[in-house]
Structures are given as structure tokens and as C-alpha cells.
Computed example of a mutant assay.
Amino acid sequence: MNLVLASNSPRRRQLLTDLGLHYTVRLQEVDESYPEHLRRAEVAEYLAAYKAAAYRATLAPDEVVLTADTIVCLDDDVLNKPADPAEAVRMLQRLQGRSHDVFTGVCLLTGTGQQVVFSDQTRVYFRSLSDSEIEFYVRQYQPLDKAGAYGAQDWIGMVAVTRLEGSYFNVMGLPVHRVWEELTKLAGTDLLPH
């Protein structure tokens, strides 16, 4: 089974590398809009499956593509990647002093048409932040490629995240414990190097 990662995220690449998995990266532009009636985890799972569908025709029988989408939910509002620094500041102002949920949807699609879609949820607690802390983070770290305008592994994660309920790696963009489990099932054997 040859793993194909369909993601440009350096964090997802690092997590798969740290798991000891061998993979190739294959990128394709995919629209990230979703039906308005979907809520929370449904959005992340829909987007992961939609991204995987774009690879269906190009997969060899021995390949499995991994697609993922991470969203931040404040109540029922989905906070995707901010369009510009001003929107990033507004998002972080909304998140500070509150808890929110991070959902990562994952789709594993094999070249033979087998598909597994799942998601993982982590609740993240932020302390109250000053406007100058938020503006510093956005200026220094340019979090425009991150759902909710922040990366838990960045400076803001160190100073603002007070508690997590769930997987830290899920907040980084990939629930690696579930990915390992589902890939093991698809492979029909353990994934440990021999």
C-alpha cells in the first residue's frame, strides 16, 4: 500500500514523517466551499471526502490517498482560514477568553475504491488576550493558512492555550492516532517498519 498525502500542510507532512510512514505528496486544487446546511464535524468530513474524490481517477490500485480538512468552530460558527490579517485579528478576538472546538475530517480513499471518512474533535481553551498580543501574533506569524487564524504549535499556542480536551495533534491538523488505526485496518497488517 503506497500512501499519497494530498495536502500542502507542512504540519501534516511532519506528523506523517514522525509516525514513520513513507508517503508521496500529490497536490491538486480543490474548491473548499461546502453546503450551508452542514454543521461542525459534518463540514470537515464533507471537505475531506470532496478533496479525495478529486484523486479517484488517478489512483493506482496499490495507492491510498489521505485528504484532511481542519476547521475551528466557535459555537456553530465555522472559522476557516482568514482572508487577510484584519480578518485574522477579528477571529482571534472572538476566540480569546473562550473555549472552541477543532474538528479535523480525514478521508482515506484506495485505488480500488474503498473509502473511510472520519473526524476527530478537540476542545481548546484560550485565555483572554490583549489586542497587542493578538496583533503581534498576526503580524509575526501570518496565520492566514490556518483555520481559526492560529496554530497551536506557534507562539500563540504557548501563551494562550490553557487546556485541551482531546488530541493536540488534531489541533495541528491531523488526528494521527485515528489515521494510524484506520491505515492499519486498510493495510490488513501493522504498519511498523520491519
Rank of each mutant, 00 (worst) to 15 (best):
Y46V: 04
A48C: 12
Y50Q: 15
Y50T: 12
K51Y: 11
K51G: 12
K51S: 13
A52F: 09
A53R: 13
A53N: 12
A54Y: 08
R56T: 10
R56W: 07
T58A: 11
L59W: 13
L59G: 05
L59M: 06
A60D: 10
P61M: 04
P61A: 10
D62W: 07
E63V: 08
E63G: 07
V64C: 12
V64M: 10
V65E: 02
V65H: 07
A68M: 01
A68Y: 06
D69P: 08
T70F: 00
V72P: 06
D75A: 13
D76M: 09
D76K: 05
D77L: 13
V78C: 12
L79E: 00
L79V: 02
N80A: 14
N80L: 13
P82Q: 00
A83E: 14
D84S: 11
P85H: 02
P85R: 03
P85A: 05
P85T: 03
A86V: 15
A88Q: 02
R90Y: 11
R90G: 04
L92V: 04
L92M: 07
G97K: 14
G97S: 10
R98W: 03
S99Q: 15
H100E: 00
H100Y: 03
H100P: 02
V102S: 05
V102C: 03
F103P: 14
T104N: 01
T104R: 00
G105R: 04
G105I: 08
G105V: 03
G105W: 06
V106M: 10
C107Q: 09
C107T: 11
L108Y: 00
L109T: 02
T110D: 02
T110P: 02
T110L: 03
T110V: 01
T110H: 03
T110Y: 00
T110C: 01
T112N: 07
T112R: 14
G113V: 06
G113C: 08
Q114K: 14
Q114L: 14
Q115D: 09
Q115W: 12
